[in-house]
Nucleic acid binder design. Sequence first.
DNA 1: TTTATAAGTTTGACTACTCAAACTTATTTG
DNA 2: CAAATAAGTTTGAGTAGTCAAACTTATAAA
Lengths: 220, 220
Amino acid sequence: MATETVENYIKAIYVLCRESPSGEAGVVRLAHEVGVTKGTATSMIKRLAKLKLVKAPRYSGVTLTAIGKRVALDVLRRHRIIETFLVSTLNLDWSDVHEEAERLEHALSPRTLDRLDEFLGRPSTDPHGDPIPSASGKVLELRGKALSAYVKGTKVEIVRILDQDRSFLKFVAQSGLKPGVRVTIDAVSPQGDSITLQVKRGQSVTLSQNAAAKILARLQ
Amino acid sequence: MATETVENYIKAIYVLCRESPSGEAGVVRLAHEVGVTKGTATSMIKRLAKLKLVKAPRYSGVTLTAIGKRVALDVLRRHRIIETFLVSTLNLDWSDVHEEAERLEHALSPRTLDRLDEFLGRPSTDPHGDPIPSASGKVLELRGKALSAYVKGTKVEIVRILDQDRSFLKFVAQSGLKPGVRVTIDAVSPQGDSITLQVKRGQSVTLSQNAAAKILARLQ
DNA sequence: TTTATAAGTTTGACTACTCAAACTTATTTG
DNA sequence: CAAATAAGTTTGAGTAGTCAAACTTATAAA
Ligand SMILES: [Mn+2]
Ligand SMILES: [Mn+2]
Ligand SMILES: [Mn+2]
Ligand SMILES: [Mn+2]
């Protein structure tokens, strides 16, 4: 079995590969993501390569092998089911659960995970709208487009928040922008680099294009 | 904060001190409990002493300091609340939850633990009848006497199973001897080294004195 | 009271993980 | 294209945790 540290690296590599257009994870960003120096990340990558979890040509980007991808999806499944439990059953704050799940995800046996999943009614997404991979390792990553991609007047439904940063999540929640909420694109200002949404009548929120890019929504 | 390993040692020392009449934990038994060699246990004890968690005179038994005792009760509280959750909410098997809680107990933040405790209705004992220490570190260890201490004809209520061994727990559960169950002492045979209980009408169980000593019960 | 044995300690070596700092290769940019 | 800079690697050292085996001290038996 992979250690807690290995699981964290693999999950981070999965996320980074998904984000980068080249489909590869860079060492510096990986190091930053897991909170270590780049030298440490390099040596860990070597170990992961020896474990057949990643492919890492020298002086180039890291990618997951099929086995590595499977490990990542397992960890992600655990992480998101736990987050769902913490929010929907224990009523913990939406913006706090990530750190907690970060530790708990390494301590759940398959059986307990399945019981938890059953108890929660087999949810398909977590509180942030992140899709929960199936037990067999399948996941539908793309649902919706970035808020910044819609034009003025469009009515959309928030489906996912891509950033796990606590303060950003806190701000998003404060603005009433949880997954499932419907908003109207009120104004788009390329000069001001901002976008304004109407959440309810009389309540509008202005976001930078950058922030709006981290919130996914779909039509209707 | 204490590492996972440190927490495991401290908890084991707490349990061993409670069991031994001298109130001290031996290195060999501690090593066995934690699953390491005695040399490893010795070197860990040194670290624990440096951390002011234990007192360990050379070539003699280990005892917890006040700080160490506090750590032990914190871990025990987490362990037992988790076990309660796994059994009463997720319907996991009574005899399986110990191993699971053994890992989860190191991953729960105080806030999440409190929410879980609240969700469960602030239970006072876990599924094995073990008392759950309070958040402030208080615990009532002694409730009931060993089954082997009662005489023939006595009607008692099972309150606690002292052994966490899976096969023993499985046997106990199979025999219908959970905490809360009422039984009658049917026969005591000093020669046969055994004791026979009537659980329901027509259902009786025979235990060795040794096994009966690990099951606590109280009158009525 | 000696002696065998159990309990406890020490030593040397190993894996997993980490950092700082020097170094090498790749990528920008003037 | 050459120089500057960013990205990636290597080296040396350190902590946490572990084992096997040799060793020392305490305890129980003879
Ligand atoms: Mn994690
Ligand atoms: Mn999430
Ligand atoms: Mn444990
Ligand atoms: Mn228990």
